[in-house]
Computed example of a mutant assay.
Amino acid sequence: MRPLVELVGAGYAYEDGPAVLSGVDFGIAEGRALVLLGRNGSGKTTLMRLLSGGLRPGSGALRLDGEVVAHDRAGLTRLRTAVQLVVQDPDDQLFAASVEQDVSFGPMNLGLPVAEVRERVESALSALDITALRDRPTHLLSYGQRKRAAIAGAVAMAPRVLILDEPTAGLDPDGQERLLDVLAGLRSAGTTVVMATHDVELAVRWADDAAVLTPSGIRTGPAGSLLADPELLSSAGLRQAWAPAVTSFLRTHGFLTANAPGPRTPDSLTTWR
């Protein structure tokens, strides 16, 4: 399957600095939940900004539907109607006086008819469960509400790919679960979701595919198998998730055959056979 959006032979270096990424071939498949993992400074943020058009590759190319993206006004508009990035800190993204004004900003700048802008805003507010906050000043929102308002602004652009940088960071457990429910709804509606995180437990539970950034490059594959590799995770400064670690222990000590599935969550251990 051809990736919806992909980097081909891409590299990037910040001014007066070494290359952060070099010779990267990386794509996002439509309809999959993809997680990006790696230690701080591994290039996750740079990778996300390259994919969403915030940065221009110093070498190589960015492709959308197989066509090279031109980094001019027309090319970037085409890209940003397909790919949206939500940064980690919502205060870096929210700027309008109210939630509704902020969410409507992107669609209005596309020059859409007023009726379509309203429809998109209503749909985004509903999807993120913040309709009741539409008139609330953004600076009076809680942290979790600001997170959802920032995501709503991206959702209102009706992207095919939504990229989220550490969306669960700073949220309490209830807030994390509510956000994951929202992302499940967006996926059901046809949005491909990409999440950068340090939380391997979350990644194993949530993702279809994973990309792990290490000093030697980017390893990609099915999340279940890739994130069960302790050497790979160690090279990326990550800890193995609970379920793969327990399964490995059970197999090592003969309690589980090679092909038998192990427990998937801590709660499942009480009923697992």
Rank of each mutant, 00 (worst) to 15 (best):
V5W: 00
G9P: 03
Y12L: 14
A13I: 03
E15W: 00
P18C: 06
A19T: 10
S22L: 11
V24A: 05
A29K: 10
R32N: 09
R32P: 02
G38P: 03
G41K: 08
R56V: 13
P57R: 05
S59C: 11
R63P: 06
D65M: 03
D65F: 02
A70V: 12
D72Y: 09
A74P: 06
G75Y: 02
G75A: 12
R80P: 10
R80W: 02
A82E: 08
Q84K: 12
P90R: 01
L94K: 09
A96M: 14
A96E: 14
V99A: 05
V99I: 07
Q101T: 14
V103W: 02
S104T: 06
G106N: 06
M108N: 08
L110C: 04
G111Y: 13
P113Q: 07
P113A: 13
A115L: 08
A115F: 05
E116I: 04
V117D: 03
R118H: 14
E119A: 14
V121D: 02
S126F: 07
D129N: 13
L133M: 07
D135M: 11
D135E: 14
T138N: 05
T138R: 00
H139E: 11
H139V: 13
G144S: 10
Q145R: 08
K147G: 05
A149D: 00
I151V: 07
G153N: 03
A156H: 00
L164A: 11
E166V: 00
A169D: 12
D172K: 11
P173W: 06
Q176M: 10
Q176V: 15
R178T: 13
L183F: 14
L183H: 07
A189W: 09
G190C: 12
T192V: 13
V193M: 07
M195A: 08
A196Y: 03
E201W: 06
L202Y: 01
L202R: 02
L202T: 09
L202F: 04
R205H: 14
R205P: 05
W206K: 08
A207R: 02
D209W: 04
V212C: 13
L213N: 03
G221L: 07
G221R: 02
A223R: 00
G224V: 05
L226K: 10
L227H: 04
P230K: 06
P230F: 13
E231M: 12
L232S: 11
A236P: 06
L250R: 12
R251W: 12
G254V: 10
G254N: 14
G254K: 14
L256M: 12
L256A: 10
T257I: 00
A260P: 11
A260I: 03
G262H: 07
G262N: 09
P263H: 10
D267N: 04
T271Y: 08
